[in-house]
Design a protein around this nucleic acid. Structure first.
Length: 482
DNA sequence: AAGGAGTTATT
DNA sequence: ATAACTCCT
């Protein structure tokens, strides 16, 4: 015990179990307080019914309840974290603030500001690795630099994990819970309304640690088939855990440990290593963002900053149609409607819609990325940016620019019977599996029989894919010539 | 320095 | 079958 009072600052790690900062605070302090701040700097830009705020509040409530069951509680504040945290540390006379590291540029700036203020008052901020298995400098090429291609990165990541199994050891908290400071008699949490938000009509299902547990248990049953089934949006075979990794209601160490065990005993089938690779992608893009923060606004490969994306009123209208799910390409539109109505989009469809915006509509990837940032429940700067730059062919390890997704081919291949399309475009539901991928090519009789009037019930395609493809090839060739 | 390889493609 | 480019070992 070296400290009297300490404060654990929860941010995107809304859980009790396997929590690095909480673990270290409990082991080193006599009295441990916890706090979550609804940061007005972040909330200011969000619509009043943003699903993520509700998810956060629900998860915060569960975190408080779990801490109380262990003898502690969670302080919840609403304000600018950079001011609230130092003020609260002073109020509690906490010598040190403990937090898990966050690697996004804005979070790093915030934490630097908090650190300075705390330091000026003779307090400290201690941060820990928790969000990832390996941080930006822990997986390097033989030359000692960062990777820019995924597969060699993944191989090095796996090698390091094999060498360092303790990277997965859980940070125990419950056994040390005696240090938690008990709740005062008047302890209460704010309501959604008090934060300035209203409920969303279609909230995110299953928030909090218990929600994560439930989804994980369900996914574990599907894991062995993940490698195959994940490509079919209608099967809903993906984990749906991304929002929980985003807000830390689940520990990534635990997921990787589970995968290792199931790879070792064979029960993970072909799915487990493939899903593990997805978790490595997450860290790959976090490493890329941490190493190259300019990718937030610029192409990873600087030559591609010269790409002349379309803009002006026509491009604006195309962008609006894409956002609204009115492009006339059913798979693209169904995907965009899934995003709008649920805040989720299947990963294959993220690729299809991103390719469509950049390669078929010729619109700057940053504009699509901004839309996803606004809408995605699981929005994460590093992954979203990496995915968009991959689709736009401007990123590290990007899709080669001459490989352009054909939205109809993708539709036939990955939604062969049109089941996913039908979920979101009921006006096309009576079209056959063959016609639903490209209604404008259907025989007039087939459309009439299905009760579809193109241009009325459903739009005609806003671009011709073959022509758009040629334009995109020329757009990219132009920067080589320059 | 040369060879192998690259998440998710296309016709 | 392709083979437009680049990275990593």
């Amino acid at each position: 015990m070296t400290l009297r009072n300490s404060l654990v600052w929860f941010r995107r790690d809304l859980r009790v179990d396997d929590h690095a900062a909480l673990h270290h605070a409990l082991l080193s302090s006599r009295h441990v307080f916890g706090v979550f701040v609804f940061d007005t700097d972040i909330l200011a830009g969000l619509p009043p019914d943003d699903r993520r705020v509700q998810f956060l509040l629900d998860s915060v409530r569960e975190l408080d309840a779990r801490l109380r069951s262990l003898g502690g509680y969670l302080i919840v504040r609403h304000g600018r974290a950079a001011q609230v945290i130092p003020a609260l540390a002073a109020e509690l006379d906490a010598e040190s603030v403990f937090a898990n590291r966050d690697y996004e540029p804005q979070a790093l700036a915030r934490d630097r500001a908090v650190l300075e203020t705390l330091r000026a008052a003779g307090r400290s901020l201690q941060t820990f690795k928790d969000q990832v298995i390996f941080e930006r400098d822990e997986v390097l090429t033989l030359a000692g630099g960062p990777y820019s291609v995924f597969t060699p990165y993944k191989n090095a990541w796996l090698k390091r994990l094999a060498r360092e199994p303790e990277a997965l050891r859980p940070f125990e908290t419950a056994p040390h819970a005696a240090a938690l400071a008990p709740a005062p008699a008047d302890h209460a949490l704010p309501s959604l309304a008090a934060l300035g938000f209203v409920p969303n009509a279609a909230p995110i299902a299953r928030p909090g640690m218990s929600g994560a547990e439930h989804l994980l248990a369900q996914f574990e049953e599907r894991l062995a088939r993940y490698d195959h089934d994940r490509d079919y949006p209608a099967l809903d075979a993906t984990s749906r855990l991304s929002v929980h990794l985003r807000f830390g209601t689940l520990s990534v160490r635990r997921l990787v440990a589970m995968l290792q065990a199931r790879i070792a005993d064979g029960s993970g089938g072909a799915g487990a290593p493939v899903w593990l690779a997805e978790l490595v992608w997450r860290e790959f893009y976090m490493m890329i963002l941490a190493r190259h923060p300019r990718v937030v606004t610029q192409s990873f490969k600087q030559a591609f900053d010269a790409v002349a994306w379309d803009d002006g009123p026509d491009a604006d209208a195309l962008l609006a149609a894409w956002c609204a799910g009115r492009t006339g390409y059913p798979l693209v539109d169904a995907a965009m409607l899934q995003l709008e109505r649920t805040g989720f989009m299947h990963n294959r469809l993220r690729m299809v819609t991103a390719s469509f915006l950049t390669k078929d509509l010729g619109i700057d990837w940053r504009r699509g990325e901004r839309w996803f940032a606004l809408k995605l429940n699981d929005y994460e700067l590093a992954s979203n940016n990496g995915g968009w730059q991959w689709a736009a062919s401007t990123g590290c390890d990007a899709q080669p620019w001459f490989r352009i997704f054909n939205p109809v081919t993708q539709s036939k291949r990955f939604d062969p019977d049109g089941d996913f399309i039908r979920q979101y475009l009921p006006q096309l539901a009576r079209l056959s599996g063959a016609a639903i991928h490209a209604p404008w090519l259907a025989r007039p009789g087939a459309l009439a029989q299905a009760g579809v009037v193109l241009g009325m019930d459903y739009p005609r395609p806003i671009v011709d894919h073959d022509a758009a493809r040629e334009k995109t090839l020329a757009r990219f060739k132009a920067i080589r010539a320059a």
